[in-house]
Amino acid sequence: MTPAHKAAAELLYTSRRTRDKVFGADREGFGEPGWDMLLALAAFGPMVAVNLFHRAAGPNPGTYLNWLISRELVALTERDTVEIAERGRALLVQYLDHEMPAKP
């Protein structure tokens, strides 16, 4: 993942957190905790502590973490950290390439 990919992931993640702050209690239904977890990992990784990773998901983070692991998008390491798996990295790079503005 290039620095531009990390910057794009951080921008997307930060934008989603801003949306949550602005809408407050009305943000119910804007879900996608698994996506938030993957963006957080891409933006702030390559590895993050499990507790930080869980904060990106909100309630019931274990459910989303298990889902991401089962899809081989993230992996647990031996030191209570989470890292993006090769499959997750490849898919996220493909998505971010599509979302990033083309350079002139």
Rank of each mutant, 00 (worst) to 15 (best):
M37P: 00
A75H: 13
E72C: 08
P33T: 01
F30P: 07
R55H: 12
A56N: 04
G34Y: 00
G62R: 03
F30W: 12
A7W: 02
Q94P: 01
L96H: 04
P33K: 00
P3Q: 06
E32Y: 13
T81M: 15
F30G: 12
A90Y: 00
H54S: 15
H5M: 03
A43G: 14
L11I: 00
R71K: 11
F44N: 12
Y95Q: 02
L76C: 12
A85H: 14
G58A: 01
T14P: 06
L38V: 03
T63K: 09
V48K: 09
A102L: 07
A75L: 13
P101S: 06
P59H: 01
N51P: 13
A9R: 00
A7E: 05
R89D: 09
R87I: 10
L39K: 01
R79C: 12
V22G: 13
I69T: 06
A102Q: 06
A49S: 15
F23K: 08
K6T: 04
V50I: 15
R79W: 13
A85L: 11
Y13K: 08
D26V: 06
P59W: 02
I84M: 15
A85I: 06
L11G: 08
G24L: 06
G24I: 02
L92V: 00
V74N: 03
F23G: 09
T63P: 02
A8P: 00
A90F: 00
A56Q: 01
E83P: 10
L52K: 12
T18G: 14
L12A: 08
A42V: 13
D80L: 11
V48I: 15
V50P: 08
E10T: 05
G45C: 07
Q94K: 05
G24P: 03
A49D: 15
R89T: 10
H54Q: 15
I69C: 08
L73E: 11
D97F: 05
I69H: 01
Y13M: 13
W67I: 12
A57V: 05
V93E: 04
N51A: 14
L91P: 04
T81G: 08
S15I: 10
A9M: 05
V82M: 15
L91C: 04
Y95E: 04
K6A: 09
D36N: 10
D20W: 13
Y64A: 07
G31T: 05
A40G: 12
T77G: 14
N51T: 15
K21N: 13
R71H: 09
E99L: 08
D26N: 12
E78L: 13
A102R: 11
V50S: 14
W35K: 06
Y64Q: 07
A7R: 03
A90I: 02
